[in-house]
């Protein structure tokens, strides 16, 4: 770890004031501290925001839920409102990391999780995300864990979050507070595709602080599932994951939500796949058609081609599980 200045901020104003260029906010620290140890993150200042009053989970009008940025992953996962209304979100959170990490990791931090690409984490390797313009070692390297959707010629790193996949399916919003006031960004627009600038990962502006996440009401989210496929039972990132919800009425799908993790450069909303389901019966053929649509634009590299079929099966399994719910 490189030396840094440590500031414990008492309130939001103090936090933003301390957050000059080269500073990082510290919440749970499960990503930041890890990357600091690897010298990937080398902040000059670390601003501890854990004293900020952003730890509430509250109901919003119409049946939505607002989750404070400092709510721990484990607290959100086990909260009665989340479990009752958005089971896929609770399942996604519990599929991530390990109990110890979930007890520390926060909602805001999870939104800003950095990729687990080997080359991003190895400072001796070329990585456009870590060092813009240095090249991408993953393109022709060990890219078994890399993305097949949303990639560019400069980066194929996956977004690692489970929580964000469920939030993408739920059309959640990110609440930001900054020097020019507050603003709201839809989660699906919060994370950026790598394009020519993989170092730019989110829509967050300098000096802005995530204060909360709004999950809007979605009645049929009670019929939902998160399925994560990984190399071992826990403490492993997704090779493929799917967050789905189904609006089933009269033996027909009226509406659907599908988002993917582990296969894309950002939490991946599969709208085309959702559209193919509308008006169809909840059967294997419908689910398979949706899965094919979701991966239609996939572009494999040398070692990650297996993810395309794996992701399709993951979608089918998640939809089957949601469809079978009482």
């Amino acid at each position: 770890m490189d030396p840094f200045r440590f500031v414990a901020a008492a309130d939001e104003h103090a936090a933003r004031a301390a957050a000059s260029a080269g500073a990082r906010y510290l919440a749970g620290g499960t990503t930041l501290v890890d990357l600091m140890k690897l010298h990937v993150e080398r902040p000059r200042t670390v601003v501890d925001i854990n004293a900020l009053p952003l730890t509430e989970i509250a109901e919003t009008p119409g049946g939505g839920v607002r989750v404070g940025a400092l709510v721990r992953n484990s607290d959100m996962a086990h909260h009665p409102l989340i479990r009752a209304r958005f089971p896929l979100l609770s399942q996604a959170l519990l599929a991530g990391a390990s109990p110890q990490i979930r007890n520390m990791a926060t909602t805001g931090g999870n939104l800003l999780q950095r990729t687990r690409c080997y080359y991003f984490r190895d400072t001796s390797a070329a990585c456009n995300k870590r060092e813009p313009g240095s090249g991408c070692s993953a393109l022709d390297g060990c890219n078994r864990i890399h993305a097949v959707l949303g990639t560019s010629d400069h980066c194929i790193a996956t977004h690692p979050s489970d929580m964000c996949v469920a939030l993408a399916a739920l059309d959640a919003f990110v609440l930001l507070s900054g020097p020019r006031g507050s603003r709201v960004v839809p989660l699906v627009e919060f994370h950026l595709m790598p394009g020519d600038h993989p170092e730019r990962e989110t829509a967050i502006e300098p000096g802005e602080l995530i204060t909360a996440v709004d999950v809007p009401p979605l009645g049929f989210a009670t019929r939902s599932a998160y399925v994560k496929v990984r190399d071992r039972a826990s403490y492993a990132f997704a090779l493929a994951s799917a967050a789905v919800a189904l609006d089933l009425r009269g033996g027909e799908i009226r509406d659907a939500r599908i988002a993917l993790g582990g296969v894309a450069t950002k939490p991946w909303r599969a709208r085309e796949a959702e559209r193919t389901l509308v008006g169809r019966p909840p059967d294997a053929a419908s689910f398979r058609a949706a899965a094919d649509a979701a991966l239609a634009g996939a572009r494999p590299r040398a070692h990650n081609g297996f993810k395309i079929e794996l992701a399709k099966r993951t979608i089918v399994r998640a939809l089957t599980r949601a469809g079978a719910m009482a």
């Binding site: 190399d231 039972a233 403490y235 492993a236």
Partner: peptide, 8 residues
């Protein structure tokens, strides 16, 4: 230990 996967 994340990518060298020992059983948990």
């Amino acid at each position: 230990f994340l990518d060298y996967r020992m059983p948990v």
